[in-house]
Amino acid sequence: MRSRRPVVASLAVLGYVVMIVPLVFIVITAFTSGSTLRFPPEGWSLRWFSEALAYKPFMTSLVSSLQLAVLSAVFALLLGVPVALAIHRGRLPGRSLLEGLFLSPLIVPELVVGLALYQQFMIGLNLDNLSTLLIGHTVLMFPYAVRVTGASLALMDPAVEDAARGLGASPLRTFFTVTLPLLRPGLFSAGLLSFITSFNNVPLSLLLQSRDFRTLPVTMLDYVQQNYTPIVASTSVLILAGTVVIAIIAERTVGFAKIFGGINT
């Protein structure tokens, strides 16, 4: 491969280097025994991991982040699946326009969405900021849910659903016994993608934060502005470890090719 396409191969290697090297620095720094984010570390210890786990603001905001990510992923799927079905199975006029419209949150800058939500929901309707964030994240995840489930739907032979109808299943029954089970890998990947996107989101979460409800990335951002301790690095490593565990579980249960196969259309 490399011998035949040296340019492509070098670019690929460069890509990996750019992606992975910063991570390596963070991971190494997390194990320092010193008290600043300095590289190379002055010595080795696990103290910043126990500090991170004991640091209340991080832990409470981690719980908030998880809550938000899980709930918004679920809501995005609950909204996105019917929309994807309507686009791909229904007889709607102007399907492609509709599909474009549902992907628009990807184009609108998040700060604009955030500001609109802030004005309309938090100030205007006096909603608490968890609900507002939940709405914001759901809106943001929604295009992913529509797109990824839509891609799995497009790959599915519609005759399979016709067959179920022909054998006596009502449309609802067909959906639950045939469409939904076949959609499972797509739903899983859409959910995972939404979860990760929500968990990593900064702009919206930053704009809609409050003292009682703040996500982990926002709290960490806040923290590094005032402190320079390796606790941020160790927290990052813990998150990284969590992500790897999720990835392994996903690979073992469904398979990566299957999960992300849904996106490449």
Binding site: A159, A163, G166, G168
Partner: peptide, 20 residues
């Protein structure tokens, strides 16, 4: 009459078996 109320057996070109 919708297909589910017709009691007809249909064999599709793609077979359309339930893969799961």
């Amino acid at each position: 009459t919708p297909p589910e109320k017709r009691n007809l057996g249909m064999v599709f070109q793609s077979y359309a078996l339930f893969p799961h």
